[in-house]
Amino acid sequence: MTKLLSVRLVAILVGLGFAVAVLWAFVVGAYNAATEEAAGHVPYEKPMDLAWSFDGPFGKWDHAQLQRGLKVYDEVCSACHSLKFVAFRDLEQIGYDEGQVKAYAASKQVPGIDPVTGEATTRPGLPTDYFPSPYPNNVAAASANNNAIPPDLSLMTKARGDGTNYVASLLMGYAPPSEELLAEHPEAAPGPGLHHNPYFPNLNLAMAAPLTTAGQVTYDDGTEATVEQMSKDVAAFLTWTAEPTMVKRKQTGWPVLIFLLFATVLAYMSKKQIWAAVKPKK
């Protein structure tokens, strides 16, 4: 009994020790908070809430949009950004046939080896090849871009919160900082080589607005290539590159959930039947 008492006595002392230590930290923190001015955040915009064909549990890819988005990536983004987890063969999933994929792959130069001399060289791509990187390595990428390495875009929409909306908003959102913002947060002014964008968490990023004029890309399907249209199309395309299996995932989900619902109802009825025998009568 005395032993048990001592266990509890020690516990009470230890507990009070932790509590005092953390409350001491609280007091110091509260004093600091009261006497020091808190560093305010420079506000940035949440991404616009845009509508997408692949939204929601029944969403589907809009192949025409994905193909337009590929064209935007191909003609604009790919100058600086790689897409290293996507293979040319994957393009068959967005509505191209084998021949078109082969021709598209062949139009790209990928790293290869000269079969005679063994020297590093380039060769036309095959469907099994992956989208080539615009730079041979990170050092080259950094030196060509003012020390900011353009990130790979394969997973970009999954690597940002609300990624699809974020990419589209960012591409549409370039604008100089407003007078009010600068008055309140002078540090929000873009530094040298930086560009202001209210959707970027730091407000200023190294990438200049890539989509600036309507008709920058000529769509094969005749869609008018406004900046908004191009931004949305490439955001949709990058959503596909980030998760090509997304639509299949949702489509697989429905039969699984419906089956489980059916099985769970059966399990419930079976459980009720079995327990009816021992449940007290009301």
Binding site: F259, A263, L266, A267, S270, Q273, I274, A276, A277
Partner: peptide, 23 residues
């Protein structure tokens, strides 16, 4: 408390078999 009517037993059997089959 077991159900004694033929119907009840059949219904119980059916439910249990269906639930186990679903699993």
């Amino acid at each position: 408390t077991a159900t004694t009517s033929d119907d009840g037993i059949r219904r119980r059997d059916f439910l249990d078999i269906a639930a186990v089959s679903a699993a």
